[in-house]
C-alpha cells in the first residue's frame, strides 16, 4: 500500500481495509462520509437516522470489504448504493408504512419542491446539465426515486402513469445520463 493514503486508489484502500488497516478505513471515511451522510439525511430527513446509516455503511465495509469489487466501479458508488438501500429500507419500515399512502398522494406536490431542491443540490454543473437535458418525465421519475426514496409504483400512481412506463423512464433516463457523463463516471473509478 502506498505510504500516501490520500492518493491511494479505491482498490488499494479496499485491500488495506481487508487487511485490517484502520488508517485505510479512516481514509475511505474521509473521502466518502460527506456524500453518504448527505444522501441519507436527504432521504430520511432525520439527522440521527442519517448518522445511523452512515455508521452502518462504514462499519459494514470494514467487516465485509470483499463485497466491493473495484472492477465494477468506484468505491463511492458502492458505498452510496449501500447507504441508499439502507435509508430506503428505513423509509419503508413499519413505522413509515402507515404514512405511505398519504405520501404517495403528496408525491406530485412534493415532486415540485424536490425538483427545485435537486437543482440546487447538484453541485456539479455537468451532472446538473445532464439531468436538465432529460425529458421531463424521465427526470422527475429519477428524482422522485433517488432523492425522494419513492418506489416506481408510487411514482406511477402519483403521476397517473402505467407502472411499466415509469420503470422504463427511470432506466432510459439513467442510461442517457450515463452516456452524457461517461467521462465523469470513469473519473471517479480510480
Amino acid at each position: 500500500m502506498s505510504n500516501d493514503l490520500a492518493k491511494a486508489s479505491d482498490a488499494a484502500l479496499s485491500v488495506a481495509v481487508a487487511r485490517w488497516h484502520p488508517e485505510a478505513l479512516s481514509e475511505v471515511y474521509r473521502r466518502n462520509a460527506g456524500p453518504v451522510y448527505g444522501l441519507a439525511k436527504r432521504l430520511l430527513g432525520d439527522q440521527a437516522l442519517a448518522e445511523e446509516v452512515t455508521q452502518e455503511v462504514f462499519v459494514g465495509f470494514w467487516e465485509r470489504p470483499e463485497r466491493y469489487d473495484p472492477a465494477r466501479g468506484s468505491l463511492r458508488a458502492f458505498l452510496l448504493a449501500v447507504a441508499h438501500g439502507r435509508a430506503v429500507d428505513m423509509l419503508r419500515s413499519e413505522a413509515s408504512r402507515r404514512a405511505r399512502e398519504q405520501r404517495a398522494q403528496a408525491v406530485v406536490v412534493d415532486g415540485y419542491d424536490l425538483e427545485q431542491e435537486v437543482v440546487e443540490l447538484i453541485a456539479n454543473e455537468r451532472v446538473r446539465q445532464a439531468l436538465d437535458k432529460l425529458p421531463e418525465a424521465e427526470r422527475t421519475a429519477i428524482e422522485l426515486a433517488y432523492f425522494g426514496g419513492h418506489s416506481y409504483r408510487d411514482v406511477a400512481r402519483a403521476q397517473n402513469q402505467p407502472e411499466g412506463t415509469v420503470k422504463s423512464r427511470i432506466r432510459s433516463g439513467l442510461r442517457r445520463m450515463g452516456d452524457e457523463l461517461s467521462h465523469l463516471a470513469q473519473g471517479t473509478n480510480r
Binding site: F78, V127, T188
Partner: peptide
C-alpha cells in the same frame, strides 16, 4: 454498475458535514 455511477454523481452535491 453504470447506473450506480450516475446515481453517485447525482449524490455528490448532497455532501454534508458529518458530526
Amino acid at each position: 454498475d453504470a447506473h450506480r455511477e450516475v446515481a453517485a454523481l447525482m449524490a455528490g452535491g448532497l455532501s454534508d458535514e458529518v458530526p
